[in-house]
């Protein structure tokens, strides 16, 4: 593996997860109220995947990172102003809807098509990264479909660690039930990895990285082709915010000992 990896990160943009989100029904399907006005960020899990990709690329000379992103061009551009300062990558942009109510099948088709169109792609060096879920659709399904379209049979989801052995094989830790990790070994690329949080902190902003990335980001945005994406064949009967407002009994001015007794009685069912 002297030539390094070709790491393609699939990463969408989502409304900043801290924002208040309301669904609205449109004739074409549901969307988020004021979606274009909400601050957008690179999906948090995709961002972890991107940082892991950059880290791996840095540690493996000859590697390169692409970020394939589907979103409205104006919003993509805005998000890239921040993301492009973090780590070096080449952007592959698709100008289309980024909301959560589009169907994974259609999104995967677009992403896989964009990956296949990357010039000089070599399957024997290919790693497809992404978030195991997203803060928008939150389905955890897109990457697997992308992998299938690229005929990649080694796929991992909820990845928290990827360690490369001397022989080029991987050890991979995936999240499973009960706060545990499943440990696997894989012979090497090609592989699809849907990342959970990994272990890397958000990289600091680096102006030189930003300047270098911008040379490819802006042309990529100019080149971005309109991509039609929706949820064909899906009929939404209803989209709503689950309202679970409870009548909260507020206990004030009760001595700590009394509160503790009440809590213990409640916990133990006494």
């Amino acid at each position: 593996m002297t030539t390094g990896y070709q790491i393609v990160v699939c990463g969408g943009i989502v409304p900043d997860p801290l924002q208040t989100l309301d669904p609205v029904a449109n004739p074409a399907g549901p969307t988020i109220k004021n979606e274009m006005m909400l601050p957008a960020v690179l999906d948090p899990w995709a961002a972890h995947a991107l940082y892991e990709a950059a880290h791996l690329a840095k540690a493996t000379p000859g590697s390169k990172v692409w970020l394939v992103s589907l979103g409205p061009k104006a919003k993509l551009q805005q998000v890239m102003m921040t993301v492009a300062q973090k780590v070096p990558f080449e952007l592959v942009a698709l100008d289309g809807q980024a909301g959560g109510f589009t169907d994974t099948y259609e999104v995967a088709a677009l992403l896989a098509g964009a990956i296949q169109a990357i010039p000089g792609l070599d399957r024997s060096r290919l790693l497809v990264f992404g978030g195991w879920e997203s803060a928008s659709r939150g389905a955890g399904a897109t990457l697997q479909m992308v992998g299938e379209r690229l005929h990649v049979l080694d796929q991992f989801q909820g990845v928290d660690r990827l360690a490369i052995a001397a022989d080029g094989s991987f050890q991979i830790l995936e999240r499973i039930e009960g706060g545990r990790h499943q440990v696997s070994t894989c012979a090497g690329p090609p592989a699809v990895l849907g990342w959970a949080t990994g272990s890397l902190p958000e990289p600091p902003n680096n102006s030189q990285v930003g300047m270098a990335n911008m040379r490819t980001v802006m042309p990529a945005l100019h080149r971005a082709k309109p991509a039609k994406v929706g949820a064909e064949g899906v009929t939404f009967a209803r989209v709503s915010l689950p309202s679970q407002r409870r009548d909260t009994r507020i206990v004030k001015d009760l001595p700590v000992g009394e509160i503790a007794r009440e809590i213990v009685a409640w916990i133990t069912g006494a």
């Binding site: 551009q77 805005q78 102003m81 921040t82 300062q85 930003g210 802006m218 945005l221």
Partner: peptide, 23 residues
């Protein structure tokens, strides 16, 4: 906020200048 976002998007699209938030 919306106005500066609108202006910022136009500027970035021009490619003539770079704006780096979070810095």
């Amino acid at each position: 906020g919306q106005f500066t976002q609108w202006v910022g998007a136009k500027l970035m699209a021009s490619g003539a200048v770079q704006i780096w938030p979070g810095t």
